[in-house]
Design a protein around this nucleic acid. Structure first.
Lengths: 130, 130
DNA sequence: CTGGATGCAAAGGTTTTGCACGCTA
DNA sequence: TAGCGTGCAAAACCTTTGCATCCAG
């Protein structure tokens, strides 16, 4: 579902932030984005970056990678399994019985990326949050 | 590859931290683990929790969930795609051409978890780090 | 004009580090 | 006894928030 915020104003800052993020392929951090934006708007503040990233994410113009929680979580089970992570409540479900994760992608083959089968995080919405 | 640290000592603290983590199914944060450990070792400090979690992770006894980087990263591409994340260098590769991710798991079906196809993070090692 | 957006500075959280002391092997 | 591990406190980070001011619509 795409939410369009009718009350939002298109400030220079917001435009530049979105533009820099769309131009980049590096998946930058807020700080890196700040450096990029600062080149075009030297007076920009860090708070503006964060506020706009939140705003843009809520309006589905930007993706925040990973869990929305900013505390690291740990798992004492080291046998092969993967995690389902609820983007709403941060609940994590273990999938212990996954034989194989099949991803059909040419880019994956070309990338020569070596998938660690113990480590996949699949995001979505858990039963309680649906 | 399993790395066993020959110089490590089995302090009470380390044993209790590992034990609590293995008993838990909640994927606790460092702080939550601290509360659990504190019940058994009232004088334990937060630094001990963090140092041991690092140590245990390096020895493959504990999994740190998510990217090892603790800064949030953002993506300006909102079309459906998933991410390959290198656990060594934190490089993120976009897979734009994934039709479907197939996960064979009974637990997944039972969980009624609703996967967001735009959001999968597959961890491993990138070409440069192999 | 109006109220959303900004910049600055301060506060809030999490994680790391320095240091003297304690404890395992 | 050697040197790894601990607890405490301070520091280092990342992110959020309060407030006066600015500016887009």
């Amino acid at each position: 579902m795409i939410v369009t915020d009718k009350k939002c104003r298109k400030s220079q800052q917001r435009k530049v932030i979105l533009d820099e993020l769309q131009k980049s392929t590096a998946h930058p951090t807020a700080k890196q984005l700040y450096q990029l934006v600062k080149k075009r708007l030297p007076d920009v503040g860090m708070a503006t970056i964060y506020r706009n990233l939140d705003h843009l994410e809520k309006n589905n113009q930007v993706i925040k990678i990973g869990s929305k929680q900013n505390e690291t979580r740990y798992d004492g089970k080291i046998s092969k399994h993967c995690h389902l992570i609820c983007r709403d409540c941060n609940h994590i479900i273990d999938l212990m019985d996954v034989d194989k994760i099949i991803i059909k992608s040419k880019e994956l083959k070309q990338s020569k990326f070596k998938i660690d089968p113990n480590y996949a995080e699949i995001f979505g919405t858990c039963n309680a949050c649906c």
